[in-house]
């Protein structure tokens, strides 16, 4: 496992969460150095607060923060936020697609949908992080990331505001890391490719 991580490289970091995740994401993004990977955030929330979300995260990280636009090509060192009320999918060519189909797990955006489509495209170059949350949305997606050889991180349930999601995830998945909020950023920085 360790050996694997030494040679692996990662192009995409996915973060999924619902209730109680915003503070954790802030903590994870704060120490992040602009590197080789892009970050995609899928957050359950009420529609309408999108520009605020970009403001909240944008002021707190060295990476560029923006909403994921449809057909936009994913660029490294950028944080993309899935827009409210649309599912966010990733195409084979590394661009985003939006989809306003039925809710999945009572959620749109659904974490499962984004994680699953990222697993298909990025395989072992994907990292997926599940945070605090009150639904099961994200667990199937995390499994798919795992199956395709990606790196899986689950927030330590003892540190989660709503521990249902991380606890449920740990029942079915053995992640590579069970991380406290202050550890996530450090783990991510460690994944940046070293120059050859």
């Amino acid at each position: 496992m360790e050996e694997n991580n030494m040679t692996a490289h990662y192009d995409l970091v996915l973060i999924g969460g619902s209730a109680g995740s915003i503070q954790i994401i802030l903590k994870a993004l704060q120490p992040l150095l602009p590197g080789n990977f892009a970050v995609v955030i899928v957050l359950h929330r009420k529609p309408s607060s999108d520009s605020t979300l970009i403001d909240i995260f944008g002021g707190k990280t060295a990476l560029r923060v923006k909403e994921a636009d449809e057909k936009e090509r994913i660029q490294p060192a950028t944080v993309y936020i899935a827009p409210a009320d649309y599912h966010l999918l990733i195409e084979k060519d590394g661009s985003f697609s939006l989809d306003d189909s039925e809710k999945v797990n009572f959620s749109r955006p659904s974490i499962d949908i984004t994680f699953e489509s990222a697993a298909e495209v990025y395989g072992s170059a994907a990292v997926a992080i599940l945070l605090s949350g009150a639904s099961i949305d994200g667990i199937e997606g995390l499994q798919k990331i795992k199956t395709r050889g990606g790196l899986c991180i689950v927030q330590d349930p003892d540190t989660a505001e709503v521990d249902f999601l991380p606890r449920q995830a740990l029942l079915s998945i053995r992640p590579d890391h069970i991380a406290r909020p202050d550890e996530i950023g450090r783990i991510l920085n460690g994944l940046n490719r070293k120059p050859a």
Partner: peptide
């Protein structure tokens, strides 16, 4: 879009 139609 490929990802969407595949999912459908």
């Amino acid at each position: 879009s490929g990802a969407s139609i595949k999912r459908r």
